[in-house]
Each structure stands twice: as structure tokens, then as C-alpha cells.
């Protein structure tokens, strides 16, 4: 509850700031429109040459791609800015202040910067996702949709945890950016239908670095491909991964405390 109130403060702060940087606001909308349109066009071109990708047809793939847009909207609004600043906070000693406050520093660093200037992109994501839903060739139950959206939100949280995994080595290496480009490079795995993945790869990106859990499994569940098993896998992987990250965070803080002066 208290953390919720803190979060409301962060949101308020963010609007105050966003109003000061209007260019950034318009650029971001522009960027996202172009970026996601190109992605949609890409799959459309592919479907000129085939009828299925893996076992999904065009309307399914389109929904999957728009679920990426929705996910990206959530992630950019809630987490991206925080993730971006994290290594600098660690390197430049910003962490010091947060360690002396009676609030979890991890909470601070995860939610401090709400990106009001990406909010438009979130709305755009919602709109295009809803459009893709109407294009689907099968009917679904309302609760199915609700579950799907919840799982996408869970995906955004999980992706942030993976982002943390890339940044936390900063505690040990003092490198300026950690391994963030590495995760960024794995984006195609997130964006392409899972059914093209072979067994080994699928295992690695489901259980080791759970990129498949972010969007692919939620879509599979929604398409009735593996409802119960899918939800189970998502729950287990998400929990385990977060446990691992929070353990890593704690040892990072310990390292920070013993290696600096």
C-alpha cells in the first residue's frame, strides 16, 4: 500500500517532467509507429510467400506481433527508463542515498522513472492489439483474453528481470553499461513465432533465459495450444527467475558494500 502510494508519486513526477521535454514526446511516438509498422510489414511480406509460419496462420501471427507492440508499450512506459539508468546509478554512487532510506532500493530503481512520454505508445499498442483481435478467425472467451493480457503484463515484468540480469554484473565489473546490448540482440527470439524454434533452443530460452515466457507462451495459451501446461510453465519459470534475480541483487549489494570505499 505504501509502495503503491510511492508509485503514484513517481507517476506524478513523470508527468511534470514529460511536459518539459516535448520533443522527446513526439519523437518517441514517431519512432514506435515506424518501428512497429515495419515489423508488421515484414510479416505481411513473408506471408506473400507462405501460408503458415510454424503452425500459425497470418491472423495469428499478426496478433502475436501486435502483442509485442502492447508489451513494448508497457515495458517502455514502466520499466525501460529505469533499466536504462540502473548501471549509472550503480557506477556513480547514486545507490548510496537509497541504501540509507527505509525503502527497498530495488523497488526504487525499478519504478522510479515512470515514462509518461511513452504513454501514447501504450495506447497505440492497445488499439492495434484490439484491431488484431477482431481479425482472428476463431472465437475466444473473455476470460481467455483477460488471462492473455495478464500474462503479457507478467511478460513485461519478466523481461525487466532479464534486463536486470544483464545489468547486475556492473556490481562486479564496474563496466558502464553491463550486457544490455546482449539482451537487445536476442530480440528476434522474442519477436518471431516460437514454433520455428528447435528443441534445445526452445528449452534454453524457456527455462534458462525465459524469453519465450514473455510473449510466445501467452500466445500459445491463448490459441489453446497448451493451456494448462503453458500456465504452469509460466508460473514456475517466472517465480524461479525472480528468485534468482533477487538473490543476485542482494549479492550485488553485498559486493558493492565490500568493494567500494
Amino acid at each position: 500500500m505504501r509502495y503503491f502510494r510511492l508509485y503514484l508519486h513517481f507517476i506524478r513526477f513523470s508527468f511534470t517532467k514529460a511536459l518539459q521535454f516535448r520533443f522527446d514526446f513526439t519523437f518517441r511516438i514517431f519512432m514506435d509507429l515506424v518501428f512497429h509498422t515495419l515489423n508488421l510489414v515484414f510479416f505481411r511480406i513473408l506471408f506473400n510467400h507462405t501460408t503458415l509460419i510454424g503452425d500459425w496462420n497470418q491472423s495469428q501471427v499478426t496478433l502475436f506481433v501486435t502483442s509485442f507492440i502492447l508489451f513494448d508499450g508497457i515495458y517502455m512506459t514502466v520499466f525501460a527508463t529505469n533499466a536504462w539508468w540502473l548501471p549509472e546509478h550503480i557506477n556513480k554512487g547514486e545507490l548510496d542515498y537509497y541504501l540509507t532510506k527505509p525503502v527497498s532500493p530495488l523497488f526504487f530503481f525499478s519504478f522510479k522513472e515512470f515514462a509518461a512520454n511513452s504513454l501514447m505508445n501504450l495506447f497505440f499498442g492497445i488499439a492495434i492489439f484490439s484491431w488484431a483481435l477482431t481479425q482472428l478467425e476463431f472465437s475466444f472467451h473473455f476470460f481467455q483474453l483477460l488471462l492473455y493480457i495478464l500474462l503479457i503484463i507478467n511478460g513485461a515484468f519478466l523481461y525487466f528481470a532479464m534486463q536486470l540480469l544483464m545489468y547486475l554484473p556492473t556490481f562486479w565489473t564496474q563496466s558502464p553499461r553491463g550486457f544490455d546490448m546482449l539482451l537487445h540482440g536476442l530480440d528476434p527470439i522474442l519477436k518471431y513465432p516460437i514454433s520455428i524454434q528447435k528443441y534445445l533452443m526452445r528449452t534454453v530460452f524457456t527455462f534458462l533465459l525465459p524469453l519465450n515466457i514473455v510473449l510466445s507462451y501467452p500466445a500459445k495459451i491463448f490459441f489453446n495450444e497448451a493451456p494448462i501446461k503453458g500456465v504452469l510453465i509460466i508460473l514456475v519459470c517466472t517465480t524461479l527467475f525472480w528468485l534468482f534475480i533477487s538473490w543476485l541483487w542482494r549479492s550485488g549489494i553485498r559486493q558493492y558494500s565490500s568493494a567500494s570505499s
Binding site: L182, I189, M201
Partner: peptide
């Protein structure tokens, strides 16, 4: 920061090539 540099280079290239190949 050679580890970061090569790791992200290799991973992103490999991911792109592998995923495209599978596709």
C-alpha cells in the same frame, strides 16, 4: 570492456542468423 563487447556482438549476430535460418 571486451567481454561485454564481444559477448553482445556474438550473441546478437548469432541470434539474428539462427532465428532467421529457423524461420
Amino acid at each position: 570492456y571486451k567481454l561485454e563487447f564481444w559477448a553482445s556482438f556474438i550473441f546478437s549476430t548469432a541470434a539474428m542468423v539462427i532465428v532467421s535460418y529457423l524461420l
